[in-house]
Design a protein around this nucleic acid. Structure first.
Lengths: 196, 196
DNA sequence: CATATCGGAATGAACGTTCATTCCTAAATA
DNA sequence: TATTTAGGAATGAACGTTCATTCCGATATG
């Protein structure tokens, strides 16, 4: 096994175990077993379990953003872009349920909470497509006159709930249903006296 | 200290610690300390940590339902009842942030997931005000033609996100904002070609 | 009334287990 | 051979739970 393979195997094993059983259901010994390496070997690649977890999160985030950027165009109406982005998010996580589960675990942990806090207070990065989109809609009066975090809750809340339900097997999502759901989200954020 | 006081002290201590630090951040020894009892004493009242946790959840659920039933009337339009119920849920958890945090922890744990599964498959209980409300709206074509779980996601998703944000200090919710948020949720679920 | 006896409630040190991390030996590589 | 990489047993801290003992109010006894 090549060096870089070992690292990848460790990341993959930890990702799967943590997504499925949570941080505390994924002991390092089990991660090592699944990765096909010795327990000590993990520590040649990652300083600690915390560092490993943070690294996995960071890699996932990169993949998600790359995938969303793919085929996203800044042209098109606000509505079109909103629908496109929301649909892509849902599609991505349906195809990568493990990523969703891991990110949820992470975001519900203390690390995730402080991360969100930092980002909310900080300036929007290029990466924050959704944030830019919503802000543009607020400024242009296409969206309801509400604070940004509220729009986030209105747009993202249902998406998260939906993905959770789908992954747990509570709903069977198909393209038609996704389309309807995303349009319903748009109804939630858009100004009702404006067209569309 | 009376007997019943001890039990209550234990429940309160565990509730607070778990809400703040999660299940794994609330060792029984710490619960005992905060409750002002010996570690062994907890086991005179609760068979195990799991049982203690389940008991707390059950007590909280009872309180929430009681509080929501208070002042809820089956008369009034669907919209009125939707707005009322959503508003009350937000108000309750803003006033009882600890309850919200505990319930979230529980719902994200394996116990919570199987609980949800059982309930979703089972018949709606009298208690499930929201479920009845949404079903009525679907049947009466006042709401969009979508499966029930999707309506749950559209209506509840934003409420959960909003409460999370408020409790973490990411938004400052006041009555006016709550009103607007709840109306936006209604816009999400209602048929857009129908009035109101 | 004073004292002795009793029984269940409360206690916290001790136990066995689990876990992240370390450490030392073996294997691979150069 | 010298150096780097891997392995997994060893370590010690932390945890849930147990249990022999203590405590305390009630009851019986003188």
């Amino acid at each position: 096994m090549k060096n870089s393979d070992k690292r990848e195997e460790i990341v993959l094993a930890a990702l799967e175990l943590i997504a499925e059983h949570g941080f505390h259901g994924a002991p390092m010994a089990m991660v090592a077993d699944r990765a096909g390496v010795g327990a000590g070997t993990i520590y040649r690649y990652f300083e600690s379990k915390d560092v490993l977890i943070a690294e996995i999160f960071s890699e996932l985030e990169k993949k998600v953003v790359e995938s969303l950027m793919q085929g996203y165009s800044r042209d098109g109406s606000l509505r079109e872009r909103f629908i496109y982005l929301s649909t892509m998010i849902i599609r991505y996580f349906m195809a990568n349920a493990i990523h969703f589960k891991f990110i949820e675990q992470y975001m519900n942990s203390p690390y995730g909470v402080s991360l969100r806090r930092e980002r909310l207070l900080g300036k929007a990065r290029d990466i924050d497509l959704f944030r830019h989109l919503l802000q543009e809609g607020i400024d242009g009066h296409a969206l309801k006159d509400l604070p940004l975090p509220l729009h986030f809750a209105l747009a993202f809340g249902p998406i998260l709930s939906l993905l959770r339900d789908h992954i747990l097997g509570f709903v069977e999502l198909d393209d038609a249903l996704i389309q309807k759901a995303v349009e319903a989200c748009w109804d939630g954020v858009r100004r009702q006296d404006a067209p569309g």
